[in-house]
């Protein structure tokens, strides 16, 4: 399998604060990779570097064999990196349909073509019934789903999901997991930040663990949860007992 995304020694500093330090890993085509780590580990910063919202201080990012380190966000979206935001950035004064069509217009100026794409995506995400509703009136779960729909409308090859499950109920979470599997089965590689370990275990092929901006380990979900260093990073030292539970 060829690699769709390669991170090579990514470092991002905000003044004196080092948010990411020397992070390297890769995502293969069609793979789902989970990114976990305690709060402040630099997960979202890493996403912002990949999607072009930030320029990394040093290191290189390669997407589909092309160096995209210095590519601005809108160019990243054009070449096939879709993303969602941790706090949903839905366009509240626009309808669900309009939110999705701005994504669909990424590769075409033809409204009919874009509308066709919107129908497809709304059906995929199960949001047809909200199509004429203002995005501002949706609840959190629906807004998160809309984020995914908008990103999917840009026809991404790689989808970056930033905590799409946070704040969802168990049922909503299950629906979201199903959606992620559905999207993945269409051949889209997914890099997802997730706190809920059950979700990470059930969706990811591999898991990346970040702690204080550094890469702790990359491995299968089983390897990660059985690694004592990961457990201590999450629970704060000497946590043998908890790991047995």
């Amino acid at each position: 399998m060829s690699k769709i995304l390669e991170l090579n020694a990514i470092t991002k500093k905000f003044g004196g604060l080092v948010a990411n330090e020397n992070v390297s890993f890769d995502v293969e085509e069609g793979e789902i990779v989970g990114v976990v780590g305690p709060n402040g580990a630099g997960k979202t910063t890493l996403f912002n570097s990949i999607s072009g919202a930030f320029l990394p201080t040093s290191g290189t990012i390669t997407f589909n064999g092309k160096d995209i380190t210095n590519l601005p966000a809108h160019e990243c979206a054009k070449i096939g990196i879709g993303r969602t935001f941790q706090i949903p950035q839905s366009l509240n004064e626009m309808t669900v349909w309009e939110n999705v069509i701005v994504g669909a217009l990424c590769h075409t100026s033809n409204m009919n073509e874009a509308m066709h794409k919107v129908n497809e995506v709304l059906e995929l995400c199960g949001m047809e019934k909200f199509r004429d509703m203002l995005a501002g009136k949706l609840n959190v779960a629906q807004k998160k789903r809309l984020e995914i729909a908008r990103a999917m409308a840009t026809d991404p090859k790689l989808l970056l999901l930033d905590e799409t499950m946070a704040g969802l109920t168990a049922t909503e979470r299950k629906e979201a997991v199903d959606l992620i599997h559905k999207i993945n089965s269409m051949g889209v590689a997914i890099l997802t930040i997730e706190h809920n370990m059950d979700v990470v275990m059930s969706v990811s092929n591999r898991v990346v663990v970040l702690v204080s901006g550094r890469l702790l380990m990359v491995g299968s979900p089983q390897e990660v949860v059985s690694n004592p260093e990961v457990i201590s990073a999450y629970l704060g030292g000497g946590s043998k007992d908890e790991s047995d539970e």
Partner: peptide
């Protein structure tokens, strides 16, 4: 108002980060 241009403008008004994330050169 029903074309790409104005949809893009409204997206920029709504949220510039979201606009950039769907490929809009703000």
């Amino acid at each position: 108002s029903k074309r790409k241009f104005f949809y893009y403008l409204r997206t920029i008004r709504g949220n510039e980060d979201a606009a950039a994330s769907v490929g809009i050169d703000v």
